[in-house]
Design a protein around this nucleic acid. Sequence first.
DNA 1: CCGAACTTTCAATAATTTTTGAAAAAGCGG
DNA 2: CCGCTTTTTCAAAAATTATTGAAAGTTCGG
Lengths: 174, 174
Amino acid sequence: MQLDEAKEKFIQAWGTLGSNWGINRTMAQIHALLLISPESASAEDIMSALNISRGNANMNIRALIDWGLVQKEHKPGERREYFFAEKDIWQVAQQVIIERRKRELKPILKVLEEVQAVEASTDDEEAVAFKDSIENLNNIVGQADRFLEITVSSERNWFFESLFKVFANKAKSK
Amino acid sequence: MQLDEAKEKFIQAWGTLGSNWGINRTMAQIHALLLISPESASAEDIMSALNISRGNANMNIRALIDWGLVQKEHKPGERREYFFAEKDIWQVAQQVIIERRKRELKPILKVLEEVQAVEASTDDEEAVAFKDSIENLNNIVGQADRFLEITVSSERNWFFESLFKVFANKAKSK
DNA sequence: CCGAACTTTCAATAATTTTTGAAAAAGCGG
DNA sequence: CCGCTTTTTCAAAAATTATTGAAAGTTCGG
């Protein structure tokens, strides 16, 4: 396979992955492009590489900066901005976890807490069943949230070493 | 808060969560409805509870069955089908992990492997850098994949106990 | 088989999301 | 302040995705 073909293929695949996970396809493609660019790229570079309009490029670059996945840079003597992506994928994953926890996990936990406050006399079976379901959900989602919190506050090596112990234990217990 | 209001609120929130994660809003709402329904529900029940058309209900119920999150049931003497959701959220999470691993993680791993086969003589800096980036990505995505594999082959208790040890260790090392 | 009860399909329509491009704003050197 | 370059905004258009509802299909008791 040729390099250009490989790059194109990767950018497309990353875009598809993104859109399956609720991330704008173009945003994911810009991210992919910058991930594999050794040099930082200007808005123009991105526009021509992906065949998108200026407005589109601008909006999605901003969104990536907002997610903490891309940063800007100024080259001396140049007026235009250049962009580059965080290349360490562990950092990327951390950042995505931080943002999604903030944007989605926290809000749903809030709602779960709120709806748990439903009025329910002990003899209202339906309400009791509802509260049970919600409590159950709250437990798991809360556990997942705490797990992710540990994950993002961990060093990559610490994290994978710890997990390795868990895996080894699992293999042993089979 | 009243029970009906709480139910409504939960259904809406679950729908929003779903759509942020690339899952059709209605599909997530039907799932939410069934999660908190002690009784199984017919297509009609779902249509009227969520104010959606027959076709929409049917399609999304099928999709939920496809994801392994909902099952059908036949009540004796009745012709129509009734649907109910898996209530154990740990099972739900497992099922979602299984499906997403199959639908999204595996394909991206395949692409990463393919593009890693790009031609690159040692002196083609650009190609070498590309291969490096991809290898890096492949490592982390592969690690995540194996972690999820362990997760879905684990008992809930085993899993959380193991993680607890990891957490405790982390706390100690602080 | 028939007809009633229910389910599935799918072309048309609606709603939502994304993209465009031109205009406005901002930054900068002189 | 001016003129030039670059960035940002945002209303309109395009593209995509979801929904409807009527028609076709299926199932089943009699």
